[in-house]
Design a protein around this nucleic acid. Structure first.
Lengths: 316, 316
DNA sequence: TTGTATGCGTTATCAC
DNA sequence: GTGATAACGCATACAA
């Protein structure tokens, strides 16, 4: 391994001078040239472990997501990466696998690896413990689920999303509109369902057909199967996230019978059917990633502004 | 921050003893108890940056994939994570975004962060430069695309996959079977297409309908559109990867006309249609991740066996 | 077996 | 503006 001392010897300067050149501190230009030449000749790259030990900070940020197999979160990741890279930061993606214990582990890793910051999409329904990171002045941004006011957040206006989706289905002339949402303990699921309910009630329609399912494909499948098993299937059904929507469409595709209209909050990048007829609200997940990363980069660069919660509306 | 010295003072022992306890080295049991108590009371966790600087090795492995939005690679990631976690290693997922420059960057990061190992799914068509990592005795496993014999690899038998998929379509009674594969410069795409061609020729069928597309959804879409624009559409079409298959199904879904049978090499976790009719070869991507991670963990634990190439067949 | 002391490679503080 | 050197927190060679 070639170290900074090797470069210094090769260039005939001290390690301090090499370090200054590498970190953009002003140095006499002839010395700088010698250093740059030596760096190139020796193919030197700083040892980032040593650097972060000394600086008490690395140039890596963690993006902790609950499900790496959910296209929503991978799109968020793309947004985060693009912004972070432009700011000279590397992103490491951590998959908490819907497990708060794994999430805690990754938060601890981020802390002890001296990572510059963390973007967290919480896995569980309870607020994660960010106090250790915050106490150590690490930048933190929470996305997707609000956890409180003392940290930067990027969330959707879930109530509005539920409302707009329901209104879209009402505008199509439906009167019997069901909703499949996530668990009662998941605030985003409940908020979206509340928006759906209010829209229906304001239109004088019944909001009795609300199903709480798990927020994954199989949840959407079994909930939709239940709805179809009812005496009269609904005219339309709203799926409040992308995976549930996939499950709903799968069940409807394998079936004949009266048509059921579908509304989905979320995106379907891998749809294998013609989904033009689906009433679809794009969440623009990449924007969530971009917004969160910008917030985080500002914090890392030392912004001392009060914590901020950005509310995203999804596609118009 | 609480350091090892704080724990030592609190327990009335030396830092060396604390370090020994934490690293499983035998220590007098009453001292060990005092250390463990102090660790618990102070909520001490070792600084991993300092540890990896000292050990010249961290307990993190990198999984570098070309496209975090491709469900194939996220499933691979799940397999890697499960095995790595069981071995006490953290996985950081790096998205090269189909860009060999980003891939090189992540390889450099893995090197300079002293990561214990790297699992790489190469992005480009040229073999990546792994010599620096190998020279520094880092564990490396290459997956999906073979790059040579001097490193552990996990790949599919792509020729056999193409052949079996084509044979499946032939067995359904088709005689005019097209194939949409990836770029000519991508060996996996060419190998699968070659299997398809040989199966057709052995059956006395024409293998003239071969289309090279990009290996993504839009590639599948435009290639399928081209095939449909021909004087007579094919009776069946083989898509040689999952994304191309999605594109093919999308085009067919939005269309009336003579039925076109579909074969796909790969998995469709987010299909929104009834895909039971599709002739489908599962690649079992999770198995690829598990296999690669086991190989890597063995290397990290010091295996000096000759580099090995594991060939996966996909689902029977 | 336990403790002391050194070094991992870098950056930052100090004196020049 | 430059160089010598002391940390950063930990693991280990060596001494006891």
């Amino acid at each position: 391994m070639v170290r900074i001392a090797d470069v210094a010897a090769h260039a005939g300067v001290s390690t301090a001078t090499v370090s200054r050149v590498l970190n953009g501190v002003k140095v006499r230009s002839d010395l700088e040239n010698r250093v740059r030449l030596a760096v190139a000749e020796l193919d030197y790259a700083p040892n980032r472990t040593a650097r972060s030990l000394r600086r008490q900070l690395s140039d890596v940020i963690a993006l902790i997501i609950p499900d790496v197999e959910n296209p929503f979160f991978t799109s968020v990741a793309r947004g985060v990466e693009d912004v972070a890279r432009a700011a000279g930061l590397s992103v490491v993606l951590c998959n908490a696998d819907d497990d708060v214990a794994k999430e805690r582990l990754y938060l601890a890793v981020a802390e002890h690896e001296n990572m510059a910051g963390v973007i967290l999409a919480p896995a569980g329904d309870a607020a994660p413990d960010l106090s250790r990171l915050i106490r150590r002045d690490r930048a933190v941004v929470v996305i997707d689920r609000a956890v409180g006011e003392d940290v930067d957040q990027v969330v959707f206006d879930n109530y509005s999303l539920g409302r707009r989706a329901a209104e879209g289905l009402i505008a199509r002339g439906h009167r019997d509109i069901a909703c499949i949402t996530g668990p009662r303990t998941t605030p985003t699921a409940v908020e979206r369902a509340t928006g759906w309910r209010d829209a229906l009630e304001e239109a004088g329609l019944s909001s009795s057909r609300l199903v709480y399912a798990n927020f994954r494909v199989d949840g959407g499948r079994s909930a939709m199967a239940d709805l179809l098993a009812a005496q009269t299937p609904p005219e339309a059904v709203l799926a409040t996230n992308n995976l549930v929507g996939v499950g709903v469409l799968q069940v409807l595709a394998g079936r004949s019978g009266p048509n059921v209209d579908v509304g989905i909050i979320g995106d379907l990048p891998f749809a294998t059917s013609d989904v033009d007829e689906v009433f679809h609200l794009s969440l623009q997940p990449r924007e969530m990633g971009v917004t969160a990363a910008r917030l985080l980069v500002d914090r890392i660069h030392g912004s001392a502004a009060a914590p901020e919660t950005k509310v995203l509306l999804g596609a118009p």
